[in-house]
Amino acid sequence: MISKKTGAFLGWFVLLLCTGTVCFFLGIILADLITKGWPALSWEFISSGPTEGMTTGGILPAIVGTVLTTVITAIFAVPFGVCCAIYLNEYAKDTSFSRLIRASIRNLSGVPSIIYGLFGLALFVQGLSLGTSVLSAGLTLGLLSLPYIITTTEEALRRVPASMREAALGLGATQFESIRDVVLPAALPGILTGVVLTLSRAAGETAPILFTGAAFYITGTSGALNQEFMALPYHLYMLSTQHQAIEQVRPLAYATALVLLIVIVLLNLTAFYIRYKHRNND
């Protein structure tokens, strides 16, 4: 028999070990990517295109492609998602219609990203004849982002006190005016935080762009929306699994992974900054 005290200590120790392991996972991911990616990272790497069958050169077209798709994602998903959240939080009563919308959102957030890829292929690439392109891929990622944007926006709207709405309505504002002039500005920091976090997730997604427009290699840094494009996550996937000289390009793969990580971290920090700054203003 172990004593009560020893048992408690052992329990604490096991939990500590679990937590330590999770931190170890994160630590090893960061440490490996940073130590091995850093040496291959240079200004040239992020400011030029790949050369000599991708065994040398940089990843500028992939950066441009990722930025472009993310912009399309934002242009599509942010207004769409914010409008839907406004409907749910400001207008919808508890009807079967609003419950159906909420159930759809919950389900959409659980749909695997590869299925979004298939849907993008069927709807945008083939159905709407947009072809494999920046546009198709951006819209596909937009659909994927939609449930997150709606959920975070609705949460931000919910935090705006009812008295703000009443104040505007009491002065003779229409409901739309009270939302536009009072509710949305008050919820803006919360909405922005959610949007930036969602976009950082979209920027790192690979599966949805596999069949909707990502390409292994394009010449130049074409910014055309109806063309195939290179993207950071897809580039990393290709360099690490499909390249004919995998061992030779490994440093490039590491550097690509590090750039991708830096982009994601920067976006996340932006979101935290918005949240932090807003808290201090209250």
């Binding site: 006190p161 008295s163 703000m164 009443e166 104040a167 309505l169 009491g170 002065l171 003779g172």
Partner: peptide, 13 residues
């Protein structure tokens, strides 16, 4: 609402 104004329990500027 313009003709009938309202002042609320808790000031809500």
């Amino acid at each position: 609402r313009k003709r009938i104004g309202m002042v609320f329990q808790k000031a809500n500027p």
